[in-house]
Write a protein that binds this DNA or RNA. Sequence first.
RNA 1: GCCAAGGUGGCAGAAUGGUUAAUGCGGCGGCCUGCAGAGCCGCUUCCUGGGGGUUCGAUUCCCUCCCUUGGCUCCA
Length: 406
Amino acid sequence: MDLLLRDTLSGRARPVRHRRGRPVGIYVCGPTVYDGAHVGHARTYLFFDLVRRHLEAERIPVHHVMNVTNFEDKIDTRAAELGVTWRTLALREEAGFLRDLHALRILSPHVRPRASAFVPQMTEVVRRLARTGRVHRQGDEWMYTPPARPREVNFATASELASHAVHEPGHPFPLGEGAAGEFMVWKRQDPPRPSWPGPWGRGTPGWHLECYAMANQLLGLPVDVHGGGTDLIFPHHFAENEVALALRHRPFARIFVHPGLVLWEGSKMSKSKGNLVRLRAALQEAGPDALRWYLLGRPLIDRFHWTSEGAHRSASEWRRIQRTLQHWLRAGEGGRVGAVRAREVAEEVRRDLAADLATDRVFDHLRAWVTAIEGDPSGHVPFGERGRAAAALRDVEWRTGLRILT
RNA sequence: GCCAAGGUGGCAGAAUGGUUAAUGCGGCGGCCUGCAGAGCCGCUUCCUGGGGGUUCGAUUCCCUCCCUUGGCUCCA
């Protein structure tokens, strides 16, 4: 069954397909490691976790890459505060971040390249961009200014540009020279800050080049599925896509996906604002399954308003679902709800996940199933059906990442 | 300001050009209860942001206004 995902760039639902002879290439923008993960990160990576689970359940090979940005200004700042090197801090935070994602049972990407290992490739990208004649110096920074492009080729940049745009079919989207579409490709910088030799002396390559260099080398462009939180659309995914268009004359990705951000107390959770719920704390309080049940309970594309009350409710609902299903699986006499129903539910789950990962509907099916079991005086799967029922449940478990049986 | 997504019962959140607008949570009332779990039943009767328009008929389509939230080079 094809997995349909809504592509953010075109706004259309598109089937995830792999190129001939290759696995599906998924490239996910990973974290900048200077602090722990919060539940917003968790929800974003849950999205890609479900993409992968679905494809693998359908026996479609997947190659899943998530980068780790391990050099960046904020890491330097934090490292200086702590009196350690940026490499030390980044290694430590990366380990903690990945441990938390793992605790949520998010499948580990097949490859987790660190940005610092791709500096030569990034520097080569800088050189090739410079050859286009579109790079200009601005103090200690070198900026790349993208050319005008038809509107449907890349994400809209900032407001001013969009507001002046004349949306005539087939006409280029006016992207002014030196305007908001430009982005930094190289910055002069010296130790102890991260720095390497480059086209204009020692310095550090721009962040946006990182994902291009890695995706190009590890997966080949365009990658089949690419994304991250909606806050990355501009400038990050815009810039990556510009690089791909400039150097390879093809888009960065065939499908861009952007799960909705998690908000808390009315605004976006972010490290810089400090208004966040840490993943580790949430895991300790609720456990991985209840947390999944909460975070996946609404369409992943929509914004998610985190409340502690909502988290508690979800946790108690999850307990009920798990308890009832575990009890049901102990075979008994006269059970009305049997393996056939389990198989139906598993098939509904499969179908709803294939339709743009409609986890909210998936959960509705599970709730209805549990309610049916609870309304059954026996409350057990009939004798002789346990094996088939358990198999159906295991399929649901695999696809959703929820652990029901144990 | 511009771009985008939304505004449905106490809350969350579906659905549909047409009988009493799903479901879950919560609340209220009642029943049952002791080798899974407290569960089960009933009630919560006039909820679709405002205003226009299209239509025999709109929550559903169109226009407009209002409001909320996010983005607009730190961001998952």
